[in-house]
Nucleic acid binder design. Sequence first.
DNA 1: CTGTTAGCGCATTCAC
DNA 2: GTGAATGCGCTAACAG
Lengths: 307, 307
Amino acid sequence: MEDAIRTLGFVRHEAARHLRAGYSSTVGLLLLDWSPAFTDIARGVDDTTAARGLTVLISNSTRDTTREETSLRLFSEQRVAGLIVVPHDTSGEGLHRIRAGGIPVVIVDRAETGDQGLSVAVDDITGGELAARHIIGLGHRHIAFVGDEAAALPVQDRLTGVLKAIAETGGDIRLDVLPADLTAEAGRETGEQLAAMPPGKRPTAVMTGVDLLAVGVLQALLQHGIRVPQDISLMGYDDIPFARQLSVPLTTVRRPHYDMGTTAAEMLVTALSGQAPQTRHVVFQPELVVRESTAEHPTRPRRGRNP
Amino acid sequence: MEDAIRTLGFVRHEAARHLRAGYSSTVGLLLLDWSPAFTDIARGVDDTTAARGLTVLISNSTRDTTREETSLRLFSEQRVAGLIVVPHDTSGEGLHRIRAGGIPVVIVDRAETGDQGLSVAVDDITGGELAARHIIGLGHRHIAFVGDEAAALPVQDRLTGVLKAIAETGGDIRLDVLPADLTAEAGRETGEQLAAMPPGKRPTAVMTGVDLLAVGVLQALLQHGIRVPQDISLMGYDDIPFARQLSVPLTTVRRPHYDMGTTAAEMLVTALSGQAPQTRHVVFQPELVVRESTAEHPTRPRRGRNP
DNA sequence: CTGTTAGCGCATTCAC
DNA sequence: GTGAATGCGCTAACAG
């Protein structure tokens, strides 16, 4: 019988099965873009769901509210069994509708609370503090933060952490916030700006909202003969796989993207099986990774050495 | 009316629509893995299909025949409208069944011919020649090729090109083929082997089947104090986005992965609309990208300078 | 132009 | 145990 099915080339019609059964074995994954951090999350989700026989519908919002809404509507129409979403900041409406529809949604990269939803996030405020303390501890007093404070919530959190760390130290520290999209190209442009400043007026340390920005900044700086870390310390955020391989191995703050993906997928699978989740909201702690792109401020020696 | 639909929260049931209409608006994308080159292809496919309102089901075979078959079966069950597949080398059967089923399939990264299928590939034999000529032109006479000759067909093509270029020069060139999986980790291991050889017996130039391998080789070499390119020239293949950002910017051969993705998706869209394709088989030409990881062989000066 | 109906392929139910 | 009937939600065809 099984043999006959195979020989005759019969293939089950999933749409019909789905319609009849009332449930599907497809889950949706909505990313913000295809950058390395999100690709790692996708890998984690993919590995976990594939092992469970689930199919994954992947979409990316390109950080655009309209495209996000469209993707969510398409997912709804597909009647996905569940959804893993890295939300764009202005979202909310479409997600509420879906959750109201009763299908489980795991929010990734945005801290949630309450006993309704499911989420996987990273404590980026602490991450920002970690980064800033490292830089401040190195003696830097004029720091730049590169990143789009206006757009991405997790980047805002990092900046909040930086400000918190600065506030704690007392207050003779200057922080310039340089808005930029979260791409290597935007990093390059910011690097150009930095390079164009007179050396005396330049920040001595640059922190970026994401590693991708640091990649661009680094490239522009080196191209203009500005040495990293001797002339400027540079620090990223994310620890994407290539951070350690850059021309100057990047000091950064690690976020466990792959694990975020597997965790989100596991939470979703649990929810799909109807079980109560162990924890509704997982928050990963970021970790400082010191490599070679940061160094002590050259003209301001360590406290207690020189007068 | 439209308003009423929106207010009442009505969402079309895609599975029912699909079942009734007999066709779906979902296409499948089957990758070999989530490495940067394939992610770029996915980006291209995603951008193109999203603009057309198509949903993309993404899966990866992890270069495993069984997983490939499973993915293809799942795609069949979903009755995807079309398929874009980067095939694992031992595949064929499952694809034939699907094509026999009449749904259009675009094969990516494998040269196809004939007036039946659709394909997007790169002339990797020429790419291999390009790479080898560059290395040979630099005066290297003992070369290593790192890559899994046994597994991936495109990598075999590159090696074929290398051998061709070597044959053309006459014959005092030694080529060591070092098998390795196509990962940075495998590259690291190969780099360790290279570092362990006595300097005199070491190849003076290393070509890798993919950039990811070169990343690992470079890391291991530098860690053992072997300078690139002064002690060993290193050359990759692919030109992944990070190749230029490595600690030593990588000389490599560029393949236009993103464009391969958009092209494959456009061919699929054309086929779905029932039109005859302009060309069934697109072959991109690779391009040599010389950066800083390759240099002249130190002990063998350029012809015509010293005796 | 609006309203009704039939049937896509499956899984579940009920009859045998 | 095997076999036929039903209906999931849509859309195309048809009737009014």
